[in-house]
Amino acid sequence: MAGCFRSSFVHPLSLRSSQHFPVGLRAQSTPHSIAPSGRIRWYATHSDLGTQGSSRPSRKQITVLSDDGTYKWAELSGREKVARATQQSFNFLLVALGVVMTGGVCTFLYLDVFSPNSKTRQFDIAVERIRNDPRCTTLLGEGKKIAAYGESTWSKWARNRPIATKIEKDELGREHLIMRFNVEGPLNRGVVHLHMVRPAEEKNFKYRILALDVPGHPRIFLENNTDSSLGGKKSPLKIFGIRWR
């Protein structure tokens, strides 16, 4: 009877783990119990399942409007690199446009206001000479109270009156600056005529005529030079309906 009985128990050490167990569970799996048939039941540990289910957290896609430079260039995809390049190109164009506009404004201010040969500068000098000339103050009144302004406009609300100014060149290549404006003092009103010439090879304007006309009084000349002293022959000009000698 005892010779006929065969035990079905198989010792665990007699089993080759490489033939009976999955590769992924071989290193960290542990035996839990032995089945009645003699085979060992194996269970995967928590670390095995966690490493297989973990993944890298996703990040927000970079666009032209949302790119703030947080991610490096190497971390971007092809589409994100195109978005960043587009954004940087647009920013560069804005900066370049700002530089050009700033340069244009500065150039305009210098040529029209701060340059020694600008119309605004010549107007200020002429007004100051009228205020300081005794013959002009005798007709107009105290120099500090003399006001200078341009031509009247169609708008009665306009505070700034434009100065009648014209710049042109003659047949000799000389540049002519012609200006006319009004002056008013406590005693009278008058009109100032300014004519300046800049020879072709010179940088600064020279006076040809600076005169004050007050109704009922002879013209007062503060400057009255001939063309011979300005590098050319006498050639009358007719501007603003007035012939300049």
Rank of each mutant, 00 (worst) to 15 (best):
M1K: 12
C4K: 09
V10D: 03
V10H: 11
H11T: 06
P12C: 06
L13I: 01
S14A: 13
L15E: 06
R16I: 06
S17G: 01
S17L: 07
Q19R: 11
Q19H: 07
P22D: 08
G24I: 01
G24N: 01
G24S: 02
R26T: 13
Q28C: 04
S29Q: 13
T30S: 09
T30P: 05
P31R: 00
S33K: 08
S37E: 11
I40C: 08
R41S: 11
W42N: 01
W42H: 05
H46E: 10
D48L: 14
D48H: 15
L49F: 08
L49E: 09
T51W: 01
S58C: 10
K60F: 05
K60P: 12
Q61Y: 15
T63C: 05
T63P: 01
L65I: 07
S66I: 13
D68Y: 02
T70R: 02
W73G: 02
L76V: 07
G78P: 01
G78K: 11
G78Q: 12
A83S: 03
R84C: 02
A85G: 10
A85Q: 14
A85F: 13
T86E: 11
Q87F: 14
Q88M: 15
S89T: 09
S89Y: 10
N91R: 13
F92L: 05
M101H: 09
T102G: 09
G103P: 00
G104L: 13
G104T: 14
C106F: 03
C106L: 15
L111Y: 14
S115L: 00
P116M: 03
N117L: 03
N117T: 13
S118T: 02
K119F: 06
T120K: 09
T120M: 13
R121H: 10
Q122K: 13
A126Y: 04
V127R: 08
V127T: 05
E128Q: 12
R131H: 12
N132P: 14
D133H: 10
D133M: 03
P134I: 12
R135D: 03
R135F: 09
R135C: 01
T138I: 03
T138R: 04
T138E: 07
L140N: 15
G141N: 05
E142T: 14
E142A: 14
K144R: 10
K144A: 04
K145W: 14
A147C: 15
S152I: 02
S152M: 07
T153Y: 06
K156F: 05
A158R: 12
R159A: 15
R159H: 15
I163T: 10
I167H: 12
E168W: 07
D170P: 15
D170A: 09
R174H: 01
R174N: 00
E175G: 01
L177A: 05
M179C: 04
R180I: 15
F181E: 02
N182I: 12
G185K: 06
L187F: 07
R189K: 12
V191K: 08
H193V: 00
H193N: 02
A200F: 03
E201W: 00
E201F: 00
F205E: 07
K206F: 04
L210G: 10
L212G: 08
L212Y: 09
L212E: 10
G216A: 04
P218Q: 04
P218G: 05
R219L: 14
I220G: 02
L222N: 02
E223F: 03
N225S: 07
D227G: 00
S228E: 11
G231M: 07
G231L: 08
G232L: 04
K238R: 03
F240Y: 04
R243L: 08
R245Y: 11
